[in-house]
Design a protein around this nucleic acid. Structure first.
Lengths: 202, 202
DNA sequence: CCTACCGATCGGTAGG
DNA sequence: CCTACCGATCGGTAGG
């Protein structure tokens, strides 16, 4: 798929750095072929966001859902899956949405709206998973699920950026340490929480 | 200064989004005037990073140094100054370095090196300030200053991006809550820690 | 500091 | 799906 290369390019050069001409060259098509396929650059960007969303679900949400039960176990699985998704460089420039969020945060328009909707969807699912852990009594010292979501995604995205910036895996260890520490402070079961590791065992 | 507009533009469109022609128009000069002034686009980018660094020191480091003693008080002052610097939109696209770090994290070269050096310098100062707080016994449950630095900058940058992305000040309150909670868990004095607020009182 | 210009590349379209 | 082309804009330079 031509969009796989588009996500990869956008994760490095940004969604604005996408050009129809280079995408066409890489795919072995003519420039006008790609241009008419998508209609406009903005529609190409929107298609890229939609494709990245599918990959994210496939690489983070789906594995965590498959390997864990609801509650704190699911929360830890989502965190570990996200760290692996970033660490494995599913996209050359790391997490596509981390890059797109910062690129577009001050640029209103349909593309930003699509990025916001995608990240909102992921964070809503994380908040729901945390709320289920609260409801099950697995995080007895937490009362605001959305607050923990903010803290979790802060660590994940910071680890992603800093790993790329310094060409190091140390930031993933920093994030894992911060998250284990936070979940323990909220009363999380030490055996569960210790399942958060910087590099996937698998 | 022509560079003030360059920082502002780069905080929104990225350092790669800077163009000599538009910068010249905005300053009322000819394109070639700006081109010969900086020599090349890369040197313009490097000059922009250097100018942004000065503004950051002036807006975050200097006020915190002037208003606080070394130790935990200084750490809290740095955090509050950073939140105010982001919240006040010193640059239209929020923190210049948050934007530049993510834009360049997968693009090696002299400009990325300059951004890395600037952020490293800021984080080194934060780590030093935290270490002084540890040495003074003000964070009795913390042993790794660099780990707390990672956690602090994670919250600050996430608040910056999310505030822009959602046009909301709520993320600053999330970051302040997270930071107070973390410093309290590390044994920080409640009176000191409560000085971290989302919106500057001044 | 300017005007004027260079080749390259951009998004998009005409025409088939 | 292609070739060929449009006007606009890019970084950079010649020449003064």
């Amino acid at each position: 798929m031509i969009l796989a290369h588009a996500i990869d390019t956008a994760s490095v050069d940004g969604l604005d750095g996408l050009t129809i001409g280079r995408l066409a060259d890489a795919a072995g098509h003519s420039k006008s072929g790609v241009a008419t396929l998508f209609g406009s650059k903005e529609q190409l960007q929107l298609a890229t966001v939609a494709a990245a969303r599918e990959v994210f679900v496939e690489r983070v949400i789906a594995p965590a859902r498959a390997s864990s039960d609801r509650g704190l176990e699911r929360v830890c699985a989502l965190i570990s899956a996200w760290l692996a998704y970033s660490d494995e460089r599913v996209f050359r420039g790391g997490c596509f949405f981390a890059a797109a969020s910062v690129e577009l945060d001050a640029k209103p328009g349909p593309v930003r709206d699509a990025v916001v909707a995608a990240t909102q969807s992921w964070e809503d699912y994380l908040t729901l998973s945390i709320q289920r852990a609260i409801d099950a009594g697995e995080l007895p010292l937490l009362d605001d699920a959305a607050q923990l979501t903010f803290e979790v995604v802060s660590f994940l995205e910071a680890a992603n950026t800093r790993s790329l910036l310094h060409a190091s895996i140390e930031p993933y260890a920093r994030a894992a340490t911060a998250l284990r520490s936070r979940l323990l402070a909220l009363g999380g079961d030490p055996g569960r929480v210790s399942g958060i590791v910087a590099v996937a065992a698998a």
